[in-house]
Amino acid sequence: MARTDAGIKTRRLTVPILDEDLASLEIGTVVYLDGVIITGREGVYKRVIEDGEEIPGDVTARSNVSFHCSPAASIDEQGNYSVGAVTATASFRFAKSLPDWFAKTDCRVIIGKGGMSPKHYRDIFVPAKAVYFTTVGYGTGALLGRGIKSVEDVFWLDELGIAQAMWVLNVENFGPLLVESDLKGNSLFEQNNKEINANIDRLYEDLKPPSLSRYGETDNKRDELI
C-alpha cells in the first residue's frame, strides 16, 4: 500500500516575505505565494552583474523573490502579454552570480529547479539570510501559469528576447513550491541524497567494470555533479 502525501505541511506566504516567515520555514514544506516575483537567468545576470546595469523601476522594493525561469509567453500586436505556462530552469549554473545579486537586490528567496550545492547554501545563502524554494516535478508549468494574475512589467525584452528578459509577475496562490533550503543552510535534497547514497554500492557490486575507462572529474556515485 503506497503512502500518501498527507504528512506534508503547506504554507501560504505574502511577498515581500517577512523575516519571521523566513525564519519559521522548514525544509520539505509546500509553499504558495501571493505578490510580485521577478524572473532572471543568464541574460539578466549578465546585464546586472557583469555589465553593472541598474535594475529598472522599483521592482526590488516590491519583491524579494527571484525566479530562475522564463515563461512561455507571447506579445500580440497591441503589446498585450499572454503567459501560458512558467517552468524553472536549473539553478546551479547561476551560483557565481548570486553573491552580487543578493547584495544588489535584497533578494531573500530564490525559486528555481534543483537547488544549489550545500556549499553554496553555506557560503552564499546563509550570509545573505536567503532561502531556496524548488518548483515541483519541474514540469508543473500549467499550475504555476494559473497563479500568474498579470504581467506588471518586462525589462530588456528587445535586447534579450522573451526567454531571457526580466519579467515582473503579479502572482496569486502561486505554487506548489517546496522549501529546499532554510536559513541555517539545511537542504532537502542533501538529506534525501544521504539516504539514497547508502544503497548505491549494492547496485554495482555484481557488475564488472568496463574495459575502457573514461576521464572525468568524479567517478564516485555519491558525489553530485552540480
Partner: peptide
C-alpha cells in the same frame, strides 16, 4: 494535477518547450 490544469485551461503543461 498539472496535466489536468493544462487540459482545462488549454495552456502548455510545461513552459520549457
Amino acid at each position: 494535477e498539472n496535466y489536468d490544469a493544462a487540459r482545462e485551461d488549454r495552456r502548455p503543461m510545461c513552459a520549457d518547450t
